[in-house]
Simulated scan of single mutants.
Amino acid sequence: MSTQTPAPASGAASAGPATGRRTADPIPGRIRAKRSPRPGTWISAVIVALVALGLINFLITNPVFDWPTVATYILDVKVVQGVGWTLLITVLAMVLGTVVALAAAIMRRSENPVLRGVSWAYIFIFRGTPVYTQLVFWGLFTVIVPKIALGVPFGPEWFSFSTRDYFPAFWAAVVGLGLNEGAYLAEIIRSGLNSVDKGQTEASKALGMGNGNILRRIIIPQAMRVIVPPLGNETIGMLKT
């Protein structure tokens, strides 16, 4: 009984053992589509590049800007110190705002109406008033509240201290910016917490986990993928503020 080797299909290049050449296309008759030319894209790119070069040339060659004088002021000691203080206040305010926002978001999710009401009022007030108005209030806090005392209501004081000794302008800025940012971050964090499927919580409770462990080990880690991107945007906005 004899066997015959089938001939290769038309349009496909065969690779024989003598030649050692590879098959050009394993799928015979494949249609190789070519992208249609897009002259509009290149024309737009050329126009944008010319406009950008013209703007750069305008900024460099225009004598009105007087770049040496600008560099002198930008590199001034006071300006450099101001940049350092700005970065420090940004970091501290974001840390304070994140902590406050996490607490407010958890309170908004609580079944207790008092916790929900306090959280809602905080978010409503601090989001509904301009941040500069709030900074004026915190800047005058030592005038409005010159002394803080702890003790029995309508009775003797255990101890008291002057707010001017512990609440300088630096901390007034940190507290003002942090509380304002916390009101905005609270809604971001709450949205992130709500994005986690409720089945995760139900499965965790079925395993005997408490609400605190569920929040720390199940809910918050999964919610971070939703929280982190807008948190970065808020940090940039805080730096500008």
Rank of each mutant, 00 (worst) to 15 (best):
P68F: 12
P113F: 00
M107K: 00
F65Y: 09
T61R: 13
F161W: 06
V131P: 03
R164T: 09
M94E: 02
K147N: 11
M107T: 00
F141K: 04
M94C: 13
N62Y: 09
R116V: 00
G97C: 15
R32D: 14
L102S: 06
I144T: 13
V80Q: 09
Y73D: 12
N62R: 09
I43H: 15
I89T: 04
L75S: 07
L102D: 04
A121H: 06
F126W: 03
I89W: 03
I31C: 08
I144Y: 06
T142V: 15
L135R: 00
F159R: 03
G139Y: 02
A24R: 13
T133K: 08
P130T: 06
F137N: 02
I43P: 05
T41G: 07
L115S: 00
Q134T: 02
V77H: 06
F124E: 05
P28V: 12
T129Q: 06
L115Y: 00
I56V: 05
I47P: 05
I47V: 11
N112L: 00
T41N: 14
A71T: 15
R38V: 15
P37C: 14
F141Y: 08
L87K: 10
P130I: 04
I89Y: 05
A103C: 14
V136T: 04
I31H: 12
F65G: 09
R30Q: 07
F167E: 10
W138R: 00
V70K: 10
R127C: 13
V114I: 01
A169T: 06
V95F: 11
V79M: 15
S119Y: 01
V83R: 13
P26E: 11
G54P: 01
G54A: 04
I27W: 13
L88H: 08
I106H: 01
